[in-house]
């Protein structure tokens, strides 16, 4: 296999998505190159096209045009192969409300063909990291928003993917826990996992290896946090964003 020669975990070229229902050009020529083992933050206001991009890359949504390569394989053509190696924690939890936390995670583990023996230790590990040990038997509908978010993350990590997409994963999570999350993200990165994290909260980006600023379905700036701040002579990512979107009102 080509695996060892591929430098990029994710590559997109001129990626476009026009939803049939809305006539909105949600993604408008996106060119991304995300390296293996990188923590990449896709930052932009609500409606800038982050979720749409992530869904197309993970194989859940059909692109209108452009090309996507994940681990060297073309998506959507080879998405069934690639799905084994990616984890997706969607923006709107997307877990079963009427199942328990454990049933949810177990369900997803089965979809990846995991045996009971593989599931148990991994599940225990995730419960610990995500501070969910006491809630394992609780029905998801009785959990708080932050706990649902963490359950969803557990579902996306149970099969030890090589690439994970966290869509607004840190929204509604309290600051202390958020720090733990980032610690964990770093530990995943150290194991060679590629992380793509979206957020509409600008300061979230500062912790990433690289940032892509998105607006109206396009990248408007890209680089490491320091590079970006230097180039734009700004103290925070938010300042850069405001500078680049000058005069325009961001649609919230």
């Amino acid at each position: 296999m080509l695996a060892t020669e591929i430098e990029y975990a994710i590559e997109t070229q001129d990626l476009v998505k026009i939803y049939k229902t809305g006539k909105v050009q949600a993604v408008n020529g996106l060119n991304l190159q995300i390296k293996k083992g990188e923590i990449y933050a896709l930052i932009g206001a609500n409606g800038s096209g982050k979720t749409t991009s992530i869904n197309m890359i993970s194989g859940a949504l059909f692109p209108t045009s452009g090309t996507i390569k994940v681990l060297g394989h073309e998506i959507p053509r080879n998405r069934r192969l690639i799905t084994n190696y990616i984890g997706l924690a969607p923006q709107d939890y997307s877990i079963y409300e009427d199942l328990s936390l454990e049933e949810n995670v177990r369900f997803f583990s089965r979809l990846y063909g995991m045996s009971k023996g593989d599931f148990e230790p991994k599940f225990e590990e995730l419960l610990k990291i995500l501070r969910l040990e006491e809630k394992r038997k609780a029905l998801v509908k009785n959990l708080s928003g932050g706990m649902k978010r963490r359950t969803s993350i557990a579902c996306s990590l149970i099969h030890s993917p090589k690439i994970v997409f966290f869509d607004e994963a840190t929204v509604g999570v309290d600051p202390v826990l958020r720090s733990f999350f980032w610690e964990y993200f770093r530990s995943l990165k150290d194991k060679g996992v590629t992380l793509v994290i979206t957020s509409h909260v600008m300061d979230e980006a500062e912790r990433a290896d690289r940032i892509g600023l998105m607006r109206a379905g396009k990248l408007i700036a890209e680089g490491t946090p320091d590079e970006l701040k230097q180039k734009h002579n700004a103290a925070t990512i938010e300042e850069i964003f405001i500078e680049l979107s000058e005069g325009e009102i961001i649609d919230e």
Partner: peptide, 14 residues
């Protein structure tokens, strides 16, 4: 409604 159907598309499930 729960969005799980979309999520399932990103898994090996046929």
């Amino acid at each position: 409604i729960q969005g799980t159907q979309d999520r399932l598309y990103a898994t090996p499930l046929r």
